[in-house]
Nucleic acid binder design. Structure first.
Lengths: 108, 108
DNA sequence: CTAACATGTGAACACCTATTCACTTGTTAG
DNA sequence: CTAACAAGTGAATAGGTGTTCACATGTTAG
């Protein structure tokens, strides 16, 4: 198996990996993900709390759900979205730590 | 301080976070990052091993270095690039685990 | 059934960006 | 100095995509 768990990643895995990062790479979509990671939340609540149209939120949630970044659960008229698994929060935490790190003098 | 280390992320941090993910969201750029994460490597070696033009690799490395995802080190004519810190590999590992996870029946 | 609400979706547009090409800058060797 | 190699850069372009608008679907209440 040439597709192990270290960094010798096979090409299809790279495409999938890039797709996940790409989905998190949009500020609006990232805010939606963060809202879902905190707690299960309905589409309309995401829209109102982030001041976005429900339509836009739905568009983004569709992509996020297709990539299994979030999962959906219906409760009456509303559909609640939440983080798909723990890896997502792990990724977000690592990136936040990366940002919080002091500049190592390798910029500019 | 409203900008703590949990998910109540302030807006400028979200922009920065999204920018990092966006940089990893391109397959070509992600391959370059993976090459750098494995071991310090020169621009020309990245280009030849990934079958890309040196120009394209330089363009991407500029962006990656600006975001402190990679760092550069000159050795003679060549410039070696490597991962900026451990958080990057942590993020990549988490995402790989996310991919490797069995489908939880929430697709399609 | 209808009305009202919540969510999903298709098309269109404006914007962004990855890539290529030509060129410049830097470095070592002679 | 020049020649050859490595890396960086600016402009132009083709393709991708986030957003909006109008509408469709689904669900509950009456």
């Amino acid at each position: 198996m040439s597709c192990q768990h270290d960094y010798s990643v096979c090409d299809p895995a790279i495409a999938q990996l890039a797709d996940l990062f790409h989905l998190l790479g949009d500020p609006t979509r990232l805010r939606i993900v963060l809202a879902c990671v905190m707690a299960p939340i309905a589409v309309s609540d995401i829209a109102s709390s982030l001041e976005l149209s429900s339509s836009l939120v739905s568009h983004h949630l569709r992509l996020l759900r297709a990539a299994r970044i979030v999962k959906s659960e219906r409760q009456g008229k509303q559909v609640f979205y939440s983080a798909a698994d723990a890896h997502i929060s792990g990724v977000l935490n690592d990136m936040l730590e990366h940002i919080a790190e002091p500049s190592n003098g390798n910029e500019a």
